[in-house]
Lab assay of single mutants.
Amino acid sequence: MGMPNRKYADGEVVMGRWPGSVLYYEVQVTSYDDASHLYTVKYKDGTELALKESDIRLQS
């Protein structure tokens, strides 16, 4: 078993793309699913969504 190939840690605050949009919002990573390679993130309004790594970026 190798290390999970994840870029962002639980609790890390990053920018997540809103689905169907080009806009990124501040989100907190809450979990990562090794099987689906999706991150569960929480937006400031409390919305929780699963995002692909390509829809997440570090805060500038």
Rank of each mutant, 00 (worst) to 15 (best):
A9I: 08
N5G: 14
L49R: 09
S36W: 06
D55G: 02
G46P: 00
M15G: 03
E26R: 07
Y8N: 01
K42N: 05
L23K: 12
Y24W: 15
S36F: 07
G2L: 07
V29Q: 00
D55A: 06
E48H: 10
W18K: 11
V41N: 00
Y39G: 01
K42H: 08
Y39V: 04
D34S: 08
S31D: 09
Y43M: 15
W18Q: 07
G2Y: 03
G20H: 07
N5Q: 14
M3I: 13
Y32N: 00
Y43N: 08
Y8P: 02
G20K: 05
V41Y: 00
E53N: 04
H37S: 13
V13G: 03
P19W: 05
K44Y: 11
L49T: 08
Y24V: 02
D33R: 01
W18E: 04
R57H: 09
S60E: 13
L58W: 10
N5R: 02
R6E: 02
E26P: 12
E12L: 10
H37M: 14
D55V: 02
Y43T: 13
S36H: 09
A9E: 09
A9N: 10
Y43F: 14
Y43Q: 06
G20Q: 06
V13L: 12
G2K: 02
Y8G: 01
V13D: 04
V29W: 01
L49V: 11
E26S: 07
L23C: 15
L49G: 08
K7C: 07
T30C: 12
S31M: 08
S36I: 04
H37K: 13
Y39A: 01
R57D: 06
L38V: 09
V13H: 10
Y25N: 05
Q59T: 13
Y25E: 09
Y39K: 01
R57V: 11
S31N: 11
K44C: 13
D45A: 02
A50S: 13
G11H: 06
A50D: 09
K42F: 07
K42A: 09
R6P: 05
G46A: 04
Y32A: 00
K52W: 09
Y8D: 01
L58V: 13
R17L: 09
T47H: 06
K44I: 11
L58S: 15
R6K: 05
V41R: 00
N5C: 14
V13W: 13
L51Y: 02
E53W: 04
V14D: 01
L58G: 14
A35P: 05
V29Y: 00
M3S: 15
H37N: 14
L38C: 09
Y8L: 04
V29R: 00
G2Q: 09
Y8W: 09
A50M: 15
E48N: 08
M1A: 15
D10L: 07
Q59W: 11
S60G: 13
V27Y: 06
G46L: 04
